[in-house]
Design a protein around this nucleic acid. Sequence first.
DNA 1: CTCCTTTCGTTGCAAAAACAACAGACTTTC
DNA 2: GAAAGTCTGTTGTTTTTGCAACGAAAGGAG
Lengths: 215, 215
Amino acid sequence: MAERIQNCFLFSEFTLEELRQFRENAEVKQFAKNQIIWQYGTPAKQIGVVLEGCVRIETQDYWGNRSILAKISAFEVFGEAFYCAHISARPVQVCSDTDTKILFFGIPEVPEGNCRTQFLEKLLQVTAGKNVMLADKMRHITKRTIREKLLSYLSAQAGLRKDSRFTIPFNRQELADFLAVDRSALSKELGKLQAEGVLQFKKNHFTLLKSSEAD
Amino acid sequence: MAERIQNCFLFSEFTLEELRQFRENAEVKQFAKNQIIWQYGTPAKQIGVVLEGCVRIETQDYWGNRSILAKISAFEVFGEAFYCAHISARPVQVCSDTDTKILFFGIPEVPEGNCRTQFLEKLLQVTAGKNVMLADKMRHITKRTIREKLLSYLSAQAGLRKDSRFTIPFNRQELADFLAVDRSALSKELGKLQAEGVLQFKKNHFTLLKSSEAD
DNA sequence: CTCCTTTCGTTGCAAAAACAACAGACTTTC
DNA sequence: GAAAGTCTGTTGTTTTTGCAACGAAAGGAG
């Protein structure tokens, strides 16, 4: 049992006996690079944990255009939302990005009792955390203009830090990707906002100023 | 106990004894219209369930502009994501939209044993469901143009129904709001797509056609 | 210090979107 | 069945954005 699944947050507090029992019930499979692990549209009957390697979460549209939603690396979980929501057909496909070893299981495979309760609470924490992040991002992205998206995001950051001066964890390109806009257009808008005296910035350090009529 | 909290999905399978015990531990409070229920920035130490009336989830930016994220009505849950993710400061405020009666509780208040496990699984299901919907919406919204957003959304619908002919649950304005774009611009783009032979539609019934180079 | 790479701001231009306004089709209501 | 209201497509105009390209600034490596 060289994979040390205790490295995964979900199992970090299992006892040795619980780990042993869980590993007996769960399934481990190996995949070569670029194999399909879960086909698009299949029912979500298991949760996956990457033990070695890296997998891609992908979508494919009606006309065959593929796009990568995320990459999941060692000791990270995937498919848990589809599993827990009991959906009948996964809206994505999962593909090995390198040679991989994957652990598959369902909640019934988790040892009963205190262990399972703890596991569920952790899974809930992970899922809820993703939820908060998604909802937060959604709040900014749904604004119509780059200016509004920026002010919404920066405002939230200031609120979070409880300080009108703060540093963001993104460089320009990353911020543009996060807000789903063009980098140069973002830079342009930042320049305008600074010229208008709404805010000041220097690299990724920002200061929000006085009042404005923005949303 | 006139509120019949069994109407709430989370508690629908509690036994009478479990319900009684739970209600002893949980807290019920009444609010007049437009009172602040949870202040922005406060720690998320409880989950809320609306028993009577309706509440608003709101944000407020650095310059004081308010925006409504959601309205929660009777027997619906709110704040569960913040609670389960153990965040230290809620990024939203919650306000009574009408006179309301709210049930507040934390997980320790749920009777132990089988009951709690079932509750956690249900809560997980609800949270995961929101997660799937949010991620799904995000996939479409992050596309850069209205055309791409539309094709992404419609493509996903076709995939979901496993049929290139399908009906969507939105009218034009609602679809525009969902994709975070202007209604008339959306109509315009739909017209173009139809003229180009990419798809056909009639009200909210759509048919996707042949191939295209869109993403 | 110099070369190389990455990041950032800027510009011009073409494309796309927002906005406002209107007319026809369809619904609902009385 | 007429009137009022809603939903949808369309058009024209203005604003915003995406895109491509470039040069300056910053940071690292040798």
